[in-house]
Design a binder for these strands. Structure first.
Lengths: 334, 334
DNA sequence: CTGAAAGCGCTTACAG
DNA sequence: CTGAAAGCGCTTACAG
C-alpha cells in the first residue's frame, strides 16, 4: 500500500542499505548515488515508517511525561514548553496523567508507557525514591520539579525552599505576622508542598515569629481547594493577615473567596502564590508570586533527558539541576 | 533481553499462535491451555511489545490531537478530558501544537504524526476544508470545535453562533448598547471567531441595535491580547458599556485592564467571555460566560473517532455532532 | 482448538 | 562506498 524503502531502492537502482544510509545521514555516500536516492524519495513521496524503525532500532524518538493533571495551569504551561523543547531536538512527548494516584505512577515507570518512550520525565507525587529505584530499568529517567534527595536520580527542580522563604520574608517585612499557609500535603512522600512549607517556617524562625499550626491548611492544589481552605479558616475563627498559597491556583482560589466575603486585599489580608502562571499577572488584584524559572526547567530537563538517551551525558550518579527563581511582587502583596 | 512471546510459548509448551490467541482474547482456547499460558506470562513477567504489535497489525492504539497551544486554558482543560476519555477506551493521545501555523497543520494531516496514530482529532485554524479534504487519507479524522460546513467530515462542535447570540442578547437586555467585541480573526479561514461574531451581530439586529465596526477589535486569543485590545479601545476614544471577549482568556485580560484603569465592572462596563474555563469562576468579579459543554465534546469526539477506527461507525458522509451550551451568568455581567 | 510459516518495514552487523 | 542477509517481536492467513 504505502511506499516502502524497497520501492525507493528499486526506483533508484540501489540496495536497501543505501537508501537507509541516505535516510540516516551516513557520511560516506557518493554524491551521485545520494542524489538518485533523494530523487526517488521525492518522486515516490516516500515517508519512513516510524514504527518499523522503532522496532528495529529500539528507539521511538518519544519522551514520556508523567504529571498529575494537564488541566492544572502550571502543568499545562510546563507541558507546552517541554513539548516545544523536545520538538527542537526531534522528539515528541507522550503525556500520562497520574491524577496523583500511586498505582498510575508505578505503572508509568515500568509498563507499556515506559516501553513506548525512550526516556521519562517524571513528577513523583505519591511514591518515594525507593519505589522509583526499584523500577529504574535501563532507559533514562529525569525527575521533575520535585526534590527527592537521592543522588541516584537525575533531577531538575526549583529552589522550593529558598523561594518560599524569600516570599514569606517579604510578607513579614511588610508587617504581616499571621500568615496562613494553604495546600500543605501531609500524606505526600516527596513533594514541593513540604519544601515550601519548610521555607515558610524558616522565614518565620528567622524573623522570630512563632509558628502556629492552626494557620496551616492541608488541601489539594486547585482553585476550589484554595477557596474552601480560606472559607474554613474564616469560619473557624482563625485570624490571619496574609495567605500564602503553595501554588498560584490555590492563591487565586483564596483571593476569590476573600473578595467574595468582603475582605480587602491586600489591605486586610495579603495574598501570595507560587508558580507565576500567566493567570497570576491578570488577576485582580494581580498576584504576588514566585517565578520558578519555568523555561529554564523545561529546557534543562529535556536537554538532560535527551543527552542521556543519546549518550552525551554519561555521568554515573544523578545530575542535579536547580533552576533559579524570581520574586514577582504585584498588587496582592506589595 | 526482554521477555518475548517466544519465551512464553516455550515455557507454556505451546506455539506462538496460542500465546497470541490468549493475549488477544480469542474465544476458542481450551481453559487448561489458557491457564498454562497465563501462568507463564505471570511467571516471566512478560509484557507485549507494542511497537511490534503496531508494525504487524497497523494499529498503534494512539490518537492524534492537533491544537494550537496546550497552555491555553481551554485547550488544556479539553486535552485533559480527551485523554481521560481515550484512556477509558484503551487509547493514548499524542498532542501536536500547531501554534496556528498553517504548515504545521498541513503536516499533521499527512506526515509522521498521522502515521503514528490510528485517527486524528483536529482543530483547523489556518487551513480550509479543501486543504483538509486533499489530505484525508484512509485513517479516520474528526474535526473539533470548529465549524467547517462540509458534509465530508466528521465534526464535533459547539453552538458557537447561537451561544454568542444568547450571550449578546443577555447583555442587551441588561441595557448595554455599545458592546465591544474583542478577538475577531479576519485572516482565519475556518474558525469559531467568525461564528461567534456572527452570533453577536444577529443579536444586535434582533434588538435593532446598529452594528459599529469601531467596536470590533481583531486580535489573538490570549489574556495579554485582551488587555491590549481594551487599552487600544480606551485610548482610541471608543465608547463602550460592555466587552464580549470571544474566549475567556481574552475576557479575563480585558477585565484586568479595565480594573487597572479604574473602570468599574460591571457598573460602567460589563464583561463576558466564552468557554467557561475554571478560571472564570474564580475571577474577581467572576466572569459571565458560555459553558460550551466541554465534557460532552470530549466524550463524543473520542467516541466517534474510536467508533470509526474500530468500524462501529460506518456512515459514508460526515457525522456532525453539536454539543449543547449553557449561559453562566456571574458578577461581571449580571 | 492449535501449529508452522510468512511477513509488517525498517536497521544492523558483516562482507567485499 | 555499497550489497545480501538476518532479524526486531509481533499478527495473520492458512492448514489441519
Amino acid at each position: 500500500m504505502a511506499v516502502t524503502m524497497n520501492d525507493v531502492a528499486r526506483a533508484a537502482g540501489v540496495s536497501l542499505k543505501t537508501v537507509s544510509n541516505v535516510l540516516n545521514d551516513y557520511e560516506f555516500i557518493r554524491p551521485a548515488t545520494k542524489q538518485r536516492v533523494q530523487d526517488a524519495i521525492a518522486e515516490l513521496g516516500y515517508e519512513a515508517n516510524l514504527t518499523a524503525r522503532s522496532l528495529r532500532s529500539g528507539k521511538s524518538k518519544m519522551l514520556g511525561l508523567v504529571l498529575s493533571d494537564l488541566s492544572a495551569p502550571y502543568y499545562a504551561e510546563l507541558a507546552s514548553r517541554l513539548m516545544k523543547a523536545a520538538s527542537r531536538r526531534g522528539y515528541r512527548v507522550l503525556v500520562e496523567q497520574s491524577d496523583a494516584v500511586a498505582d498510575v505512577e508505578l505503572n508509568a515507570l515500568q509498563g507499556p508507557f515506559r516501553q513506548l518512550t525512550d526516556g521519562l520525565l517524571f513528577t513523583p507525587l505519591m511514591i518515594d525514591a525507593d519505589a522509583i529505584a526499584a523500577r529504574l530499568g535501563r532507559k533514562p529517567l529525569v525527575l521533575l520539579g520535585e526534590h527527592i534527595l537521592d543522588s541516584r536520580f537525575d533531577l531538575v527542580t526549583m529552589k522550593n525552599e529558598e523561594a518560599a522563604a524569600a516570599l514569606t520574608a517579604r510578607l513579614l517585612s511588610g508587617g504581616r505576622r499571621r500568615i496562613a499557609v494553604i495546600g500543605a500535603h501531609s500524606g505526600e512522600s516527596a513533594g514541593s508542598a513540604g519544601l515550601r512549607l519548610n521555607g515558610y517556617r524558616k522565614a518565620l524562625d528567622q524573623a522570630g515569629v512563632p509558628f502556629d499550626p492552626a494557620l496551616v491548611a492541608p488541601c489539594q492544589w486547585r482553585r476550589d481547594n484554595g477557596a474552601a481552605a480560606v472559607a474554613g479558616l474564616l469560619e473557624g475563627g482563625v485570624e490571619f493577615d496574609a495567605v500564602f498559597g503553595l501554588n498560584d491556583a490555590l492563591a487565586l482560589g483564596a483571593l476569590h473567596e476573600l473578595l467574595i466575603r468582603g475582605v480587602r486585599v491586600p489591605r486586610e489580608v495579603a495574598v501570595a502564590g507560587f508558580d507565576d502562571i500567566d493567570e497570576a499577572r491578570f488577576a485582580s488584584p494581580s498576584l504576588t508570586t514566585v517565578a520558578p524559572g519555568m523555561e529554564e526547567i523545561a529546557e534543562r530537563s529535556i536537554g538532560l533527558l535527551v543527552d542521556r538517551i543519546e549518550g552525551r551525558e554519561t555521568s554515573g550518579g544523578g545530575v542535579q539541576v536547580e533552576a533559579g527563581f524570581l520574586l514577582q511582587v504585584r498588587e496582592s502583596a506589595p
